[in-house]
Design a protein around this nucleic acid. Structure first.
Lengths: 144, 144
DNA sequence: GCAAACCCCAGTGGAGAACCGGGGTATACT
DNA sequence: AGTATACCCCGGTTCTCCACTGGGGTTTGC
């Protein structure tokens, strides 16, 4: 139930890509890592899995970098964390004597998961960007 | 976001204690472990943390065992998992350059947690027991 | 007093998180 | 063409936590 570093990094990186989305220019790992102070070699791995999941695409070579494959309002936070956290179809693991009680417990846990996922589904990268901008405005107001 | 073994075991054990609550007699680790097929030495540790959290009390010596400290409808699933999962006050860990973006991300994660916790808050051990009984009835119906 | 229970502490094996590093490959620019 | 600049892939490391096992101590009922 804790927000992992992985997911936070991924969200921050995609948020950065969101704000540069309209330029059409790719953003480089180094730039993202510097702005959000994320270890760059680690971020590289995360972006690789995001690429494999189809959320971003990469351009190799000089002047390369990463771009979102979709508009920021089409990518939900659920898309991000579920791919980075590796949902794995959650597997319904074992064979062994599953008691009635454990079925009941797992059933209610599904409700918990669905409640959490509902929240993640309703927010998009766009929403995050807007919240950040709103927060920036607030900070400026208070500064004056 | 996955249900850990720990929490599942703890919930199953408390569910077992719930059904024997009206007898007033203590239930032993071995009995609980056998019925829910949980490794007993492991369950011992979980019951110890539940005891330290005040959810159960223990009776030592021969004919000893564990009892709920409260009625089953007074113990929410949130009480159980938060104590077993060790909430640790979630610590707001680091000092370092927290960016505006990461504050926004964490703010939305709080919403996710609260949604999950809301579900856990609304269910009690009593509810689990009733669901189990209902499920048993269903199974009997289908069996005929 | 003795066996049945809980109590405490310690250790182990495996998995995953959060990194770091090296060498390979594609691409833009000169 | 050649070179610098990016991404790409594969590996290892340290650390923490989970799930579990084991040994020895203490309380209690018969």
């Amino acid at each position: 139930m804790e927000l992992s570093c992985k997911s936070e990094y991924a969200l921050l990186a995609l948020l950065e890509l969101s704000t540069h989305y309209n330029t059409g220019e790719p953003l480089q790992i180094r730039q993202i890592a510097a702005k959000q102070n994320i270890p760059d070699r680690y971020l590289e791995q995360l972006l690789a899995t995001l690429r494999r999941a189809g959320l971003v695409r990469s351009q190799r070579g000089a002047k390369g970098g990463y771009l979102l494959t979709q508009e920021p309002w089409k990518i939900t936070l659920f898309d991000v964390v579920s791919c980075i956290e590796g949902i794995d179809a959650q597997s319904e693991q074992e064979s062994a004597p599953t008691t009635t009680e454990s079925l009941v417990v797992r059933g209610m846990w599904r409700e918990v998961r669905q409640a959490a996922e509902a929240v993640l589904q309703k927010y998009t990268l766009q929403d995050l960007a807007e919240k950040r901008d709103a927060k920036h405005q607030m900070d400026i107001m208070y500064y004056i």
